[in-house]
Design a protein around this nucleic acid. Structure first.
Lengths: 200, 200
DNA sequence: AAGTTCACATACCTTGAGTATGTGAAACGG
DNA sequence: CCGTTTCACATACTCAAGGTATGTGAACTT
């Protein structure tokens, strides 16, 4: 019952990643101690440093994983629609809901910018979910559905709006809050429509 | 040339606060070492712990100070206008510009949520700048200028939008970015106007 | 079967936050 | 004016945790 090295290596790495993810989400980056993460997985700190160059390195890998999953969920939600407006709305709503997940919330939205620095965080965000937003807006501009304008500032505004709204929603006890936020977001987006194209 | 104790105490506290503010803004919370802050001011770490209960305590005091100044700037910018729409726009524009300040950026927008926790950060934000936003929106709803709706979700969306946009603007080399962001924000806000009230 | 690689374990170092206690000058009471 | 108290710090120490240097045994190679 001997195990190959590549198998073992991959298993350990996955285990460290999973345990780190759990703890980073539950306790926040600062309160997680690497030795404990390793011990919980049945290895020592040395193993963690063999797989990741540092505590930040493990965190970075976790952030990348969570971001990638988030991006996929957003993309999957938008994909079935043909109308770019509906794609945008579906993506936004999925993001709002997903951002309330404690893992996304704590790891990606709260800790990552401070731990990795805003520039790196933004680069990772762009690679995953924020890219979909820019693309959707770009499609709407090209289709003439919204006023011709630079997409980047708009994408940043909307991305930040949804990030913050998700953080807030996760803390809200009001069950209507999600629906109200979606409505408010719809109103804001509606402001972008070309004049001939307004909806009530 | 003997100095009273209250004077001395106040002077030391102010100096620690100022030096901490400089370093937190320049290096980020994690890379600032309390001993160095104290030494730069001509006292030892003991003094810092006498005035603030911890490193986080000093940081919290700095955040509160920066937040308060920011809130005042926003309020001052809005105050001269009578029209609530113009008050909102002026406040938003001032916030966008102020958020690019490295001190606000790093201390308030990047580090504070992770270091103090999102809940405390939000409470402080609400006490200073975000409150003005809610009040402005509330006035617009009551005046019938924008559709009747819960103000809180909308305020969160807009607050997050401007926070993120400010972070992005600070990193943008494009001199037109600020103007483009202001335009995009205007378009979004315009979507809130009551139907009878749309503007080009 | 001998040698090499490598996925870890072990032992150690270092930094920095936090604490416990000391001290001397201002405040205060007589 | 003098003894006492207060307090704004300084000094010396503890401890947790990130990081590093090196050892080791099992898998892989030849």
């Amino acid at each position: 019952m001997t195990v190959t090295r590549v198998e073992q290596r991959a298993a350990t790495r996955r285990a460290l990643l999973a345990e780190g993810r759990r703890r980073f989400a539950a306790d926040g980056y600062h309160d997680v101690v690497l030795t404990d993460v390793a011990q919980a997985v049945g290895v020592t700190k040395g193993a963690a440093y063999h797989h990741f160059e540092s505590k930040v390195g493990l965190f970075r890998a976790v952030v990348a994983e969570v971001q990638r999953e988030l991006g996929e969920r957003v993309a999957d939600a938008a994909e079935p629609y043909d109308d770019p407006w509906e794609q945008l709305r579906a993506g936004c709503r999925t993001f709002l809901a997903a951002g309330c997940d404690p893992t996304v919330r704590r790891i990606v939205l709260v800790d990552a910018p401070a731990v990795l620095g805003w520039d790196e965080w933004r680069a990772m965000d762009e690679d995953s979910s924020a890219r979909h937003l820019s693309e959707a807006l770009d499609a709407l501009v090209k289709a003439g559905a919204i006023a011709d304008q630079p997409v980047e500032p708009l994408a940043r505004l909307l991305s930040g709006a949804m990030n913050e709204a998700a953080l807030w929603l996760a803390r809200s006890a009001n069950p209507q809050a999600l629906g109200q936020t979606e409505q408010a977001l719809d109103r804001l987006l509606n402001g972008l429509r070309s004049q001939s194209n307004q909806q009530p």
